[in-house]
Design a binder for these strands. Structure first.
Lengths: 166, 166
DNA sequence: TGGAACTTTCAAATAGTATTGAAATATAAT
DNA sequence: ATTATATTTCAATACTATTTGAAAGTTCCA
């Protein structure tokens, strides 16, 4: 496959993949573009290559920086800001995991912890409490595993897990 | 907290959580409702409790069945179909994992495998191939871990992983 | 066989989300 | 201080996804 075609396929696929997981398409595409670019790119570069507006690029670059997936870099003698993606895929995975855990999983664990203590003795109340308890156990456990794998090294974790499960 | 309030909170939260992960809100809410219901519910029941249309309920129940998260059950003497959720949270986690892996992760792994073989020797081509290779390694590894943990038992896996990472 | 009960379909409406682009703001150079 | 360049904001718009609801389809029973 030729580079041009391959780049394009990758950007499209990464965008589609992201949107299936609740990450907006443009953000995923900007990320993809920066991932495969050996040099940092300017806002203008991203606009041109992806054919999206200045506002859109700006907003998504800021979001990517917020997720620690992209850094601003300054070139000397250049007024504009340039942007480069974190290239280490393990770091990428860790950062995404850490953010989503913090923003989505932790609040859910907290809520389930509260819901476990619902009052009532009816069949309905019992079923509810059981579900809340089970889900709380599951989510806490996932939370704990992610916490530890984010702290330590994801690569090592995956290797260890593969071995464990052989 | 009272049951009524707790149920409501749970359904809302599960719906919001789902939509952050690319699962539509109604589907997640129908799932939540069935999860906390000790008895199977009819289409009509779900319509009333969630205030959503017949068509919507029907479509999402079918989707949940497709994901193996909900089963049709027949009550004898009853013409209507009833629906009950799988209550074992480990099975729920396994089924969701299995489906998403199959539908989303596997195609991505396949694509990255192809993209690794892109032609070209420019800096751009090299950066591209490196990224594709790294991502292919990462996604394949995740794929392998999920494959094994889906085959075996998720609970055991999480316990083992927690221990490993202590 | 007719018709009541229930389920499914799908085009149209609605709601939700993302994107644009131009104005406002900020920053740097002269 | 003025101008040129770059960045940010945000109301308007475009786009996508979801939901509705009525019609069509199916199944069961008398």
């Amino acid at each position: 496959m030729e580079l041009h075609e391959a780049k394009d396929k990758f950007i499209q696929a990464w965008g589609a993949f992201g949107s299936q997981w609740g990450i907006n398409r443009s953000m995923a595409q900007v990320h993809a573009l920066l991932l495969i670019s050996p040099e940092p790119l300017s806002t203008e570069d991203v606009m041109e290559q992806l054919n999206i507006s200045r506002g859109n690029v700006n907003m998504n670059l800021r979001a990517l920086i917020d997720w620690h997936l992209v850094d601003k870099v300054l070139k000397n003698g250049e007024r504009r800001e340039f942007f480069q993606a974190e290239k280490d895929v393990w770091k990428i995975a860790t950062n995404i995991t850490r953010e989503r855990k913090k923003r989505e999983l932790e609040p859910m664990v907290r809520l389930l912890g509260e819901l476990k203590q619902t009052t009532g003795t009816s069949a309905e109340a019992k079923a509810f409490k059981q579900t809340a308890t089970d889900l709380h156990d599951l989510t806490s456990r996932i939370d704990a595993v992610l916490e530890r794998s984010a702290r330590s090294d994801v690569q090592w974790f995956l290797k260890a897990a593969s071995t464990l499960l052989r």
